[in-house]
Design a protein around this nucleic acid. Structure first.
Lengths: 242, 242
DNA sequence: CGACGTCCGAGAGCGGTGCTCTCGGTGTGG
DNA sequence: CCACACCGAGAGCACCGCTCTCGGACGTCG
């Protein structure tokens, strides 16, 4: 490709204008994404808005899916950043939990199309490349840290209250992979597989609640979205023992 | 439109072949939906498969969105029917809960593209018409009935265990609309607003768990999808007091 | 029976899309 | 200073949803 004679070199004028134009493209694409949604995001329309030929865009993004991938990663990072800044590690567990949940929902309501791009149905032939994983896991990490800190502090009582018999058999191997264990805060005596399953379930519940609201699946069932969300997340925290 | 001289009249040969061709179109569309997904569902490809001109399809469906609406309603009905047949009202609450959850997930795994069409990001300019609501609410009704029966039988202890202070103020108006109350089984002394919020939250959690799995958001975090789902739904039932 | 009206399929066509290729100009590094 | 890499523009391909028109087939009614 290009010669990289030292570990990092001063960007030439060519490279500078290239990254600049790339940023303009992603900005225009993000604007159009916010307006018409991901499915209707047209590469030609982006080119029109920028006043260049559609074929010129392919010098910067080899395909429309690559441009979408860029937007996806940026979206994950934006959402993850808001979740991280919303978490005050010195607050009480339930307040931390509620604050992060509210922040995630607020971001989703402010960027509905981006949220749909991140968490809605995957686009037809498109499969998320591996480099989206770090950005995608950020908000899950935040929620996992909140629950993990609470568990280490003695909250989140053991799950096996009812001593429910495992239906599939006697053995009880772990279902949470070691990678996820590392992401969720590593090993700790107070963190067993059941607690981690509960953390995954909690994140799934938050995601389900926000998506239900955003995708219109409880339009006739809930009067006040804000208050319902607070009530539901409080109830979820209470049920988890937070 | 057509003369309806009596309450229902014998279908003419024209009408018979029309409904027949309509069924062939929806069948072919469903096949293509299962193969390539909703976003890539091409009206022209459906016409090709049926050996007719693409313009002829517009005699039966005025637009692609109308065809999608037909598929959406059919999908909701299919999923709702499996959920209803999976519920055995004589079984124990937790078994009923688990059976319905497993049935919903099994249908979703068997028809991923249809599930994505129902519960994924809404298509760009498309807004679900009102006549999808009855079919769409069927599975929620089933889950609501399971929880409602349990509550009426004395399970689902009152939510206010911690006597958590309402952050927004003293008053506590209902957030669940009367329509949803009617759908979820009507009024009952054991069913207050908190229980109904919990039912909505439960359905959201089930949806979130299935969607997370189906949309690939926990590919690296869960080893065995079946066992994780059972564990998570059991944990959810236990947390709800089921 | 025949005429009429209604329905329906086919074809052409419009504007849109993603994507490819080629060509000519321009800036940059050797 | 020159060659080479880069880049923008245009034409073009195949596909898409959708519209219009036309001709044929059907059924109904005079």
């Amino acid at each position: 490709m290009f010669t990289e004679r030292h570990h990092h070199h001063v960007p030439t004028a060519r490279e500078r204008v290239r990254t600049e134009i790339t940023a303009e493209i992603t900005d225009a694409a993000r604007r159009q994404l916010a307006e018409v949604g991901a499915a209707a995001l047209s590469l030609r329309a982006v080119a029109r808005e920028l006043g260049m030929a559609s074929s010129a865009l392919y010098r910067y993004f080899p395909s429309r899916d690559e441009l979408l991938t860029r937007l996806i990663i940026d979206g994950y990072d934006a959402l993850g950043a808001t979740a991280e800044t919303a978490d005050d590690p010195t607050a009480a567990p339930r307040e931390r939990w509620l604050a992060v949940c509210r922040a995630v929902r607020a971001w989703a309501l402010a960027h509905p199309h981006e949220y749909a791009l991140l968490y809605g149905s995957p686009v037809p032939g498109y499969s998320a490349p591996q480099d989206t994983v770090p950005s995608a896991s950020r908000v899950g990490v935040v929620l996992g840290r909140v629950l993990g800190d609470a568990a280490r502090a003695g909250a989140l009582p053991e799950a096996g209250g009812g001593a429910l018999p495992e239906a599939g058999g006697g053995d009880d191997p772990r279902v949470v992979t070691p990678e996820a264990v590392a992401i969720l805060g590593g090993e700790h005596p107070a963190l067993d597989d059941a607690v981690r399953v509960r953390a995954l379930l909690a994140w799934s519940s938050v995601y389900g609640t926000i998506s239900f609201e955003l995708f219109g699946h409880l339009v006739g069932s809930v009067a006040d979205g804000d208050r319902y969300f607070d009530r539901a997340m409080t109830e979820l925290a209470r049920m988890m023992g937070l």
